[in-house]
Amino acid sequence: MSVVIPVGMGELKVARSPETLVVYGIGSCIIVSLYDTKSKVGGIAHIMLPDSSGIAKERLNPNKFADTAIPALYDAIKGESGVFKANLHAKIIGGSEMFPPTEDYENNIGRDNTAAVKIALKKMGFPLIAEDTGGKRGRSIEFVLESGLIMLSILGEEPREL
């Protein structure tokens, strides 16, 4: 039987086959997954905000921010046996705007989060092989570590694989 591990807002988890990582109700948050195809080890960071600059170090929860969570995810995954940086690839899911701004000066957190994780992934040199981002709907995912596939569900749409 496979073990299902939920990853909440601002959390970061690493697991390996036959485990499954799940995230329910993703809005403007963005999920970054890293997966090692050879060892079937993977991890997820459930990121809430784009940028940690300006936050005092002693108060910083690195898992919440795109610029700090992706290095933290790599740190957590690289210690697992059989993981090599060259085998890792990334997928990103989320970054929607559930309540589209009614005033044009308002910022769009979902879009900012998406842009920030792309920059952070590039900096770390992880190839981004799939993404499902933006829009106005919430998302839920199941990251099956045996196959490396991410099952994506959106209200009112057919589930699909990433």
């Binding site: 109700g25 403007s28 559930m98 589209p100």
Partner: peptide, 27 residues
């Protein structure tokens, strides 16, 4: 108050948007 924005979706997804910016400093 700003104009209302409405959606029908998962509660968890809505909360992301509403609280994200408030949690930069404190959890």
């Amino acid at each position: 108050n700003s104009l209302p924005s409405m959606t029908y979706d998962m509660a968890g997804a809505m909360i992301d948007n509403v609280i994200a910016e408030m949690t930069a400093v404190s959890d």
